[in-house]
Simulated assay, not measured.
Amino acid sequence: MKTQKFKTNINCGNCLAKVTPILNAEPKINSWDVDLKSEDRILTVESTDMTEEEVFKTVLKAGFIAKPE
Rank of each mutant, 00 (worst) to 15 (best):
K2W: 05
K2R: 13
T3Y: 11
Q4M: 12
Q4W: 03
K5R: 15
F6D: 12
F6V: 11
F6I: 10
K7T: 14
K7F: 12
K7Q: 15
K7R: 15
T8R: 12
N9A: 13
N11P: 08
C12H: 08
C12N: 14
C12L: 09
C12W: 09
N14A: 12
C15F: 06
C15R: 03
A17I: 00
K18A: 13
T20Q: 12
L23G: 02
N24C: 00
A25F: 02
E26L: 01
E26I: 02
K28N: 05
K28L: 08
I29H: 07
I29A: 05
N30F: 09
S31M: 06
S31H: 05
S31L: 04
W32E: 01
W32I: 01
W32H: 03
D33G: 10
D33V: 08
D33N: 15
V34Y: 04
D35G: 02
L36T: 03
L36A: 08
S38E: 06
E39C: 01
E39A: 14
R41Y: 11
I42T: 15
I42R: 13
V45D: 10
S47G: 15
T48F: 03
D49I: 01
D49F: 01
M50G: 02
E52T: 08
E53L: 05
E54A: 14
E54K: 03
V55S: 03
F56M: 09
K57T: 03
T58F: 01
T58N: 03
V59C: 06
K61M: 11
F64N: 06
I65R: 12
I65C: 01
I65H: 08
I65Q: 12
A66W: 02
K67S: 10
E69H: 00
E69L: 11
